[in-house]
């Protein structure tokens, strides 16, 4: 039984590590800051969750702490990247949009709206 739990733990840790690696590829390959954040956020959240979950299998007495840490990561990780995206949007970094969807100028309007509101 213990070895099964150990193998499950190692499996989840490897899955987490694999997602983190893919996320770093994503950060390298994506064209602009927003797409990079997309890849980075999802991969880092999933990667760290998977790793923590795997550690939970290896050390079952840590499981309650690990669940609390997972909830904190789920709440805080998207917020931090949202803050980066919002900041870069407000400081005027334009996203690289595809030619065919160039009509999406909503973000500029949205940022202007929110800047006006704060003033």
């Amino acid at each position: 039984m213990e070895t099964v739990l150990q193998y499950l733990g190692y499996f989840f840790i490897s899955v987490g590590a694999a997602f983190l690696l893919l996320g770093s590829f994503g950060i390298l390959r994506m064209p602009d800051i927003y797409s990079r954040l997309q890849a980075g956020t999802k991969a880092s959240t999933m990667g760290s969750l998977g790793m923590l979950f795997g550690i939970g299998f290896l050390e079952p007495q840590w499981l309650p702490k690990i669940i609390v840490i997972m909830i904190f990561i789920l709440l805080s990780n998207p917020i931090s990247s949202h803050a980066i995206a919002r900041g870069s949007c407000k400081s005027g970094i334009k996203p690289k949009l595809n030619e065919t969807v160039n009509s999406y100028k909503r973000i500029a309007e949205g940022c202007e709206e929110s800047i006006k509101k704060e003033e």
């Binding site: 893919l22 996320g23 602009d32 991969a43 996203p95």
Partner: peptide
């Protein structure tokens, strides 16, 4: 979503069609 991003990243053509919607 992670599998989705992984597939996009590993695809040599990088098939993205980004836009901002509301």
């Amino acid at each position: 979503s992670n599998l989705n991003v992984a597939l996009i990243v590993l695809n040599p053509k990088l098939p993205i069609n980004t836009g901002i919607v509301e």
